[in-house]
Amino acid sequence: MRALVIDDSRAMRRIVSGALEGFGYETRQAAHGQEALDLLHDGWMPELCTIDWNMPVMDGLQFVSAVRANPAWRALTLMMVTSESEQSQIVRALAAGAHEYVIKPFTADALRDKLALLGLLPEEALL
């Protein structure tokens, strides 16, 4: 399985990518929504995107809306991974088309549980 980790913090991209690779994912990274969209337009299609909310250039909510506006990307699973934890923000992200919402700080176990709920935990991680 492939995952695209979108976060303006290089440290957080490393942490999220490390956890996903530990579950068996192949990952790529983007520093903001526009960079992520460029990767998708170039044809690199992951099963999962993890998305920070507050980023320069294009924020996470704009990215979710852009992905959901393209029927060709309907199969993409979108998971917000963000420190924005107000209930109204969570509702906005889910209404825009995100499937799941993980609040920072999170543990690898919490991420694993969310992926299992989505049916996106690679077989090797289930062993």
């Binding site: 303006d8 913090s9 507050n54 980023m55 320069p56 963000t82 420190s83 924005e84 934890s85 107000e86 109204s88 923000q89 609040i103 920072k104 700080p105």
Partner: peptide, 19 residues
């Protein structure tokens, strides 16, 4: 950012968080 985001959630909202 993580500490600030969670402090923000404990305050009256809605609020915006900077980078």
């Amino acid at each position: 950012n993580v500490v600030g985001g969670n402090v923000k959630a404990a305050l009256p909202g809605p609020s915006q968080l900077s980078l």
